[in-house]
Design a protein around this nucleic acid. Structure first.
Length: 224
DNA sequence: CCCTGATTCGC
DNA sequence: GCGAATCAGG
């Protein structure tokens, strides 16, 4: 019957949250922060989720809470040489490197997966794959891997065309705003990602979205 | 260019 | 305590 043990919920004033100018770090919000940070979410993602705060605010809070380091099973291989000498130099590491071959980091961007109408269990796209050898290094939610499929010739043509304009970026350059369409063979030097601006809410650029998300109307009839 | 976290410092 | 500005890096 402790009525004041924590009174965590008594902090809510009589206002409902809706675009409040001053978001404070309520117990609830801090909880979310801890949870997401612990999960490896980025500060910007957390900030977006919480709303009303910037990633700077999130980072600042994280540090104040003393959770600057999210070591939780991840190797991290942190090389934390005591910062000194310069007032601004302790900048090294602390970034999730997808190239870590010692431990897969369960970092997921949470694929938005629009169009949830049809059970698109079978991926479809096939950007570029003359041979049958796909050995994706990272074991993360990469875009649907290629797979023989019938796609509108026009869509494919569009892809072929867009591939010429593709930025041809590397894995490191992938962001939520870059088309994540893989091209080529990961095992060769001829592998890259489209990198063009993605379509709102989708992981690929317009051209690749076209072939990635087939309504399945065009792909049915595949009996053999 | 986009992004990441780290730190500083005025509020 | 808070977070914008800044920094340092990928």
């Amino acid at each position: 019957m402790e009525a004041d043990t924590l009174t965590k919920r008594s902090g809510q004033r009589g206002r409902f949250l809706t675009g409040e100018p001053h978001m404070s770090w309520t117990d609830e919000r801090v909880e979310t922060l801890k949870k997401m940070w612990g999960e490896g979410q980025s500060a910007s993602q957390i900030a977006k989720e919480l709303g009303g705060v910037t990633r700077n605010a999130v980072i600042g809070k994280v540090h104040r809470l003393g959770l600057s380091n999210r070591t939780a099973g991840a190797p991290a291989a942190a090389a934390k040489p005591e910062p000194k000498a310069k007032p601004a130099a302790p900048k090294a590491e602390a970034k999730p490197k997808p190239a870590a071959k010692a431990a897969p980091e369960p970092e997921a961007e949470a694929a938005p997966a629009p169009e949830a109408e049809e059970p698109a269990a079978a991926p479809a796209p096939k950007p570029n794959l003359p041979a049958r050898k796909q050995i994706i290094p990272a074991g993360q939610p990469l875009p649907p891997q290629p797979s023989a499929n019938e796609i509108s010739p026009e869509a494919l043509a569009k892809v072929s065309e867009v591939e010429k304009k593709a930025k041809k970026i590397g894995l490191m350059e992938l962001t939520e705003r870059t088309c994540k369409w893989p091209v080529g063979d990961p095992a060769t030097d001829d592998f890259w990602f489209c990198g063009l601006p993605v379509q709102q809410g989708k992981p690929y650029c317009e051209a690749h979205v076209g072939v990635a998300f087939q309504p399945m109307s065009a792909r049915r009839d595949r009996r053999r």
